[in-house]
Amino acid sequence: MSNLEERSPGEAAAYREGWRAGLVLGAVAVAVAAFINLLSMEKSILAIVLALIAIRGAGPGRTRFRGRLALAIAAVHLAVAATVFILLHDKLERLFSLLQSLG
């Protein structure tokens, strides 16, 4: 956000709102992409961080809604991944031991 002090207050506010909208769209995209690979929990964490940055200071509207959507998708992904790890712990342990024997 360079040179915002040189712009009018309306232009600066529009710039910040566009910046937040871009962040929140990135957060939604990353949260949805995390479901492609269940083990990619770091993508959900990144989506949560991006959504929280975008929501902070955003007024009511699309940006806040999309930020909450990204938070919800990422939280569901983390919950599903944790549940899978808990339920399939023994099978994952066996898979890792078999992979170790191959390499």
Rank of each mutant, 00 (worst) to 15 (best):
residue 2 S to F: 05
residue 2 S to A: 11
residue 3 N to S: 11
residue 3 N to L: 07
residue 6 E to L: 03
residue 6 E to D: 11
residue 7 R to A: 14
residue 9 P to I: 01
residue 10 G to N: 15
residue 13 A to N: 08
residue 14 A to C: 04
residue 14 A to E: 15
residue 14 A to N: 12
residue 14 A to W: 07
residue 14 A to L: 13
residue 15 Y to N: 08
residue 16 R to H: 04
residue 17 E to S: 09
residue 18 G to R: 03
residue 18 G to W: 00
residue 19 W to T: 09
residue 19 W to G: 09
residue 21 A to Y: 05
residue 21 A to Q: 10
residue 21 A to L: 10
residue 21 A to S: 13
residue 23 L to R: 05
residue 24 V to C: 02
residue 26 G to Q: 15
residue 27 A to S: 07
residue 27 A to D: 12
residue 28 V to P: 03
residue 29 A to H: 10
residue 29 A to G: 11
residue 30 V to I: 15
residue 30 V to C: 07
residue 32 V to C: 06
residue 33 A to C: 06
residue 33 A to H: 03
residue 35 F to H: 04
residue 37 N to L: 11
residue 38 L to D: 10
residue 38 L to W: 07
residue 39 L to G: 12
residue 39 L to K: 06
residue 39 L to D: 08
residue 40 S to F: 12
residue 41 M to V: 14
residue 43 K to M: 14
residue 44 S to N: 08
residue 45 I to D: 06
residue 46 L to P: 04
residue 46 L to Y: 10
residue 48 I to R: 10
residue 49 V to K: 14
residue 49 V to D: 11
residue 52 L to H: 14
residue 53 I to D: 01
residue 53 I to Y: 04
residue 54 A to L: 00
residue 55 I to K: 03
residue 56 R to K: 14
residue 56 R to W: 03
residue 56 R to S: 06
residue 58 A to Q: 00
residue 58 A to V: 00
residue 59 G to V: 05
residue 59 G to H: 05
residue 60 P to N: 12
residue 61 G to C: 01
residue 64 R to T: 10
residue 65 F to W: 10
residue 69 L to S: 05
residue 70 A to M: 00
residue 73 I to L: 11
residue 74 A to P: 03
residue 74 A to D: 07
residue 75 A to E: 08
residue 76 V to Y: 05
residue 77 H to K: 08
residue 78 L to V: 12
residue 78 L to S: 13
residue 83 T to A: 08
residue 84 V to Y: 03
residue 85 F to R: 15
residue 86 I to F: 11
residue 89 H to G: 06
residue 89 H to E: 05
residue 91 K to R: 12
residue 93 E to D: 08
residue 96 F to T: 06
residue 97 S to N: 14
residue 97 S to L: 10
residue 98 L to G: 08
residue 98 L to I: 06
residue 101 S to Q: 13
residue 103 G to Y: 09
